[in-house]
Design a protein around this nucleic acid. Structure first.
Lengths: 202, 202
DNA sequence: AAGAAATTATAACAAGTGTTAGGTAAAAGG
DNA sequence: CCTTTTACCTAACACTTGTTATAATTTCTT
């Protein structure tokens, strides 16, 4: 088991985290259906049967990763919003967009594994993940609502649709990468410009 | 083989189309990995082995559906643009958005099957689909370029990013339905409003 | 260092998958 | 209507998959 650990780390915890990490990477690269337990085990220098010591089965492993994916994005965005609590409303929106994109693209595979595989996991998992996702959704709803109440968003804009448009364009960057070399900050700035100032010219 | 056909229709053509139609529906509902040839055969009141008379294999069938999916969206959008050739540039953009959404949501399952399964088919299929998709991409690139040259889109807007944002928000409606009862026209209008006039308030 | 507990390997299982080749029923052609 | 061709059935195959129970190895505790 070629995994490095510190003296106070239990093997179980280190192995378990490594399995989660490597599986997340496989899910991003191959998708749910094309990632077998044997693939996962190989990526971990283990055998498939051993994975059952740590997880109840493939789907439990996958669900844990996907749940953690949403949680990580949510935590990152909340942290950033907390740190920017005194900033103007639309600045906070732009920051949230940037952090969302950074978490998806740069931080780890968990968030992107979630988005990539959501539509393909068994229905019961998807159902449970929907409510986890709804929590993060509420973060955006609150953020946009505050911005609209502060007068920063036009009153005729339906916030549900706006949230949807923003999240849609951001998450779509995982399916069809925007452009090589473009980072989260630049993406966020471009999308923010389009969504809030509009691409149109009078 | 419970399928209705007209006197001039060949059984082969009718059966083949029915297999494509029903498979597209399954792909939308279940995804690529969870749709077996036995599922498809059952949906067609056939046995799995029989599908080989019409298609070389599962992947040939799936690829044909997904290719047709892009082609249908493209054809619909091009038709609509042709019919609106005298309209102002941004009207044409809005029409294209509406037709894109209508084709995805109301017309048939082929387009949505494409989007749902794209990230999950074998890499060689995905590679070929990428170039099919690039053709449709070019339709949008041209449309937006004409609008910008006509002065309808701000000169600082990068058209590649704008196209991306628009397609992203529209295609995301397949992953996470915007709202029950909202049709393509209303969606298109809302997304158009956000993307071109901006949600912000001065 | 020894023994207990933890962690991984192993072999096997049952079920499912895409596919093939030969057979048969249905459609088409004259 | 009869014959030929077409379209579907069938049985089997080889392989893959998630999973289980037991064995073996490694880690942890005293």
């Amino acid at each position: 088991m070629p995994v490095t650990r510190k003296p106070d780390e239990r093997l179980r915890d280190v192995s378990r985290r490594m399995i989660l990490d490597r599986t997340a990477g496989l899910l991003v690269r191959q998708g749910y259906g094309a990632t077998s337990l044997r693939d996962i085990a190989q990526a971990c220098d283990m055998k498939a049967g051993s994975l059952y010591y740590h997880f109840d089965g493939k789907d439990a492993l996958v669900e844990e990763i996907m749940t953690e994916g949403v949680k990580r994005v949510e935590a990152s965005v909340l942290d950033a919003l907390q740190a920017a609590s005194g900033s103007p409303p639309l600045d906070r929106v732009r920051i949230a967009m940037e952090v969302h994109l950074r978490t998806l693209h740069d931080k780890s595979d968990y968030g992107s594994a979630h988005i990539r595989c959501f539509a393909h996991v068994p229905a019961d998992i998807r159902h449970r993940l929907r409510s986890t996702r709804a929590g993060y959704d509420a973060v955006w709803a609150r953020l946009l609502s505050e911005a609209q109440q502060a007068g920063a968003i036009a009153p005729d804009i339906d916030l549900h649709t706006l949230k949807f448009a923003i999240i849609g364009m951001m998450n779509w960057t995982l399916e069809w990468p925007l452009q090589n070399g473009v980072g989260p900050e630049e993406m966020a700035n471009s999308f923010f410009r389009i969504a809030f100032m509009g691409a149109g010219q009078d």
